[in-house]
Amino acid sequence: MKQKKAASKAWPEKWHEINPGCMVFIPGNASTYHTGSWRAQRPEWDNKKCIKCGLCYIFCPEGCISEDAEGFFKANLDYCKGCGICAHECWPGAIKMFEEVE
C-alpha cells in the first residue's frame, strides 16, 4: 500500500494518473485544503476570562480549536470559517468575534 501512496499524485492531471476507482490512499488529506479564506470574522480569546472549560473546542464544527501547553484554547485560522459558535457558547465571555479586514 505504501507504494500505491507514493504512486498516487496529490492532484492528478492526466487520465492515467487517476487512482483505480478514485480511491484516496492518504487519510484526512482534505486538511491541505484551507477553508480559512471563507471567514469574515475571526475569534479572539481573552485568556484572563478563560476558565479552560474546553466548550469552544468541543462545539467547533471544524475541529480547528486546540488546547495549548497552559490549557488555554486557540483556533487554527487556516481552517476557522468564522461561524461564531465558540464566541456564542463561551459563557464566561472570553471569546469575541472581530471583523476580518483586508
Binding site: N29, S31, T32, Y33, T35, N76, K81, C83
Partner: peptide, 13 residues
Amino acid sequence: EFFSAGHRACQGC
C-alpha cells in the same frame, strides 16, 4: 479527530 479540518461544510454546520 477522525474527521479532518479542511472539509467544505457551511459555516456553523
